[in-house]
Design a protein around this nucleic acid. Sequence first.
DNA 1: CGCCAGGTGCTGA
DNA 2: TCAGCACATGGC
Length: 290
Amino acid sequence: MIEVPAADFSLRATLTSGQAFRWTEHDGWAYGFIGSSVLKVRQDGDRLFCESSDPALTPNRISDYFALDLNLPEILSSINVDIQVHQAIMRYRGLRVLRQDGWETLASFICASFNNIKRIEGMIERLCQAYGEPVALNGFRGFSFPTAERLARVPERSLRSLGLGYRAPYLRATARLVAEGKLPTDHLRRVDYETTKRALLGCEGVGDKVADCVALFGFEKYEAFPIDVWMERAMRYYFRHRKMTRKGLHEYARRHFGPYAGYAQQYLYHYVRNLRAAESTKHKADSTQS
DNA sequence: CGCCAGGTGCTGA
DNA sequence: TCAGCACATGGC
């Protein structure tokens, strides 16, 4: 059993906030992958308890994946600049932006465009079952995320048969780009946001929104501020009447929230997506208490 | 059944 | 540069 100190952290909020698509829960444990290694993890207060199939998953590696080295209170105070984001922070304090694998994040968010999370999860799971490597841990059986080299050799029709729809050719083309070394994922982690985003926009199926998601979740670019339909809804708070393009919202948000705008985005996204659900459970709690 | 989903690429003004 | 449109699929 590996133990990892985890102050200012909410495993649940982090794993259910729509930045990763492959974590599942069984008997109070979360099962997922860090790279190609399975991790079984649960949180108890300020500590994580972990088991893994791979000795390479050291406490340091796990801590890095969950970005536990970052000073979250400092980040949150830097983005806590209006009442709406303040509410989101109050409700989901401890949510952190993961440091996921760049290629997996890129491929996943190509699948995520114009789609819903349930189906995204299904598509990615089928991709892994078809082209990943089987891995087991205790009773858990899963498949690692396929490499770019592997997906580059898969015919478009095979990807379509997994339910990827019109994204199939995009994913295949991007897998080829990465496999040929024309999109240096290791390098992108070390260059700035603008450079990373420009490189990502060169992939088919990657526009502004997907590029920002990949920059944020896969390449540690915390200025990135992805805008999807949920964020458009959240941003109505700032522009009740004036109609704004996504580009306008993007420029405003980056100025408004600063260098950790991506954290603000993730808190707001999770918050607005769960507004109705949170309200109804709150009413339930209120009525059972009285 | 119609509507919606972590949008993008293409086209024509 | 920007609006308008087609695009696959499955959950609800």
